[in-house]
């Protein structure tokens, strides 16, 4: 057994597949399965979830045994958290505060995901890009969004 399996790509791949496949199996247990000739809504999810779990077990064992390829270590936790969060913020703001605040939040937020974040440059850029998007999307393409909620 490989002692460094926690650093193995295969091991984590296996866990991921088992988690997703197992989750699908668990949820689909309540769906009507039917038979191969009269498939119910649960037939495909159960079969596919089962296949994923099988693949997961295969990879996990491979990872435990040899560990094959190690995970690359150069990745940015900052980007992994901030970038999706800025999208979430956009989704929350656009219906509640309007197009302009949502855009500004998204642009500044995602720019902050980079280590090269420069406040002045990003502030300027976010205003310019937002203005551009207002012209193109709201005025030219006529998308139905309030610029700032309640004011238009």
């Amino acid at each position: 057994m490989n002692r460094n399996f926690l650093e193995s790509k295969d091991f984590w791949s296996g866990l991921m597949l088992i988690a997703i496949g197992g989750g699908a199996l668990f949820i689909a247990r309540n769906y009507q399965f039917g038979s191969s000739l009269r498939m119910g809504p649960g037939y495909f999810p159960t079969v596919l979830g089962g296949i994923l779990v099988m693949f997961g077990v295969y990879f996990a064992i491979a990872g435990l045994r040899s560990g094959a390829e190690p995970l690359k270590s150069t990745w940015s936790l900052r980007a992994l958290i901030i970038l999706p969060l800025s999208l979430v913020l956009f989704g929350l703001l656009i219906d509640r505060a309007g197009f302009v605040p949502a855009m500004l939040a998204l642009i500044v937020g995602s720019a902050a995901a980079s280590a090269q974040f420069k406040v002045v440059e990003v502030a300027l850029f976010s205003v310019l890009l937002t203005a551009f998007c207002v012209v193109v999307f709201i005025w030219m393409l006529g998308l139905p969004y309030e610029l700032i909620t309640g004011i238009w």
Partner: peptide, 19 residues
């Protein structure tokens, strides 16, 4: 520069998907 390009990609993606 990529540090400006990627926020723009994010912005266009978000508008597009929302629309």
């Amino acid at each position: 520069p990529y540090r400006l390009l990627f926020p723009a990609i994010m912005a266009f993606s978000a508008i597009g998907i929302f629309s």
